[in-house]
């Protein structure tokens, strides 16, 4: 005699609603508190202490000594949040964003502080220095 222990469950399931989330038609499953999404980098707050460069296991950060900031490519990020915990000024934060698919791995949304932006910051800093010298 064969036993079919699943049969009652299966028949019951047939008359229940599907327990799924039809994503593109609806909102995705909400992220929990403290979710580790894409890094958000605030250039203004950065003081260039290089703690994030030391602590990052994936080599996301590159220190730019000329302007004393870091540039980062989150394409490599492993979402461990160590840079956020170690950042003394709170320039690095975790966001809720997790839909990060892209056709291009060097897409603009993965890169903070492009070389052009770095140039601009460099110019601004030099202007500031000149202004300070003049005022002295």
């Amino acid at each position: 005699m064969i036993r079919l222990p699943l049969l009652p469950t299966v028949i019951k399931n047939l008359f229940k609603r599907p327990a799924t989330n039809p994503f593109p038609k609806t909102e995705p499953v909400p992220t929990p508190e403290g979710f580790r999404g894409k890094i958000v980098y605030n250039v203004e707050k950065c003081v260039g202490c290089r703690m994030c460069v030391t602590v990052c296991p994936a080599g996301v950060f590159i220190y730019l000594p000329e302007i004393r900031k870091v540039t980062l490519w989150t394409g490599r990020c492993v979402f461990c949040k160590q840079c956020v915990d170690v950042c003394p000024t709170g320039a690095l934060q975790m966001s809720d964003e997790f839909l990060l698919a892209s056709y291009d791995k060097y897409d603009g949304k993965f890169i903070y502080l492009t070389p052009e932006e770095a140039e601009e910051i460099k110019k601004k800093q030099e202007e500031l220095k000149k202004a300070k010298k003049k005022s002295q």
């Binding site: 299966v10 028949i11 399931n13 047939l14 229940k16 609603r17 599907p18 327990a19 799924t20 039809p22």
Partner: peptide, 11 residues
Amino acid sequence: KLVARMQRRIG
């Protein structure tokens, strides 16, 4: 479709 519904999927 029916197999999916029996497993609480949409199918």
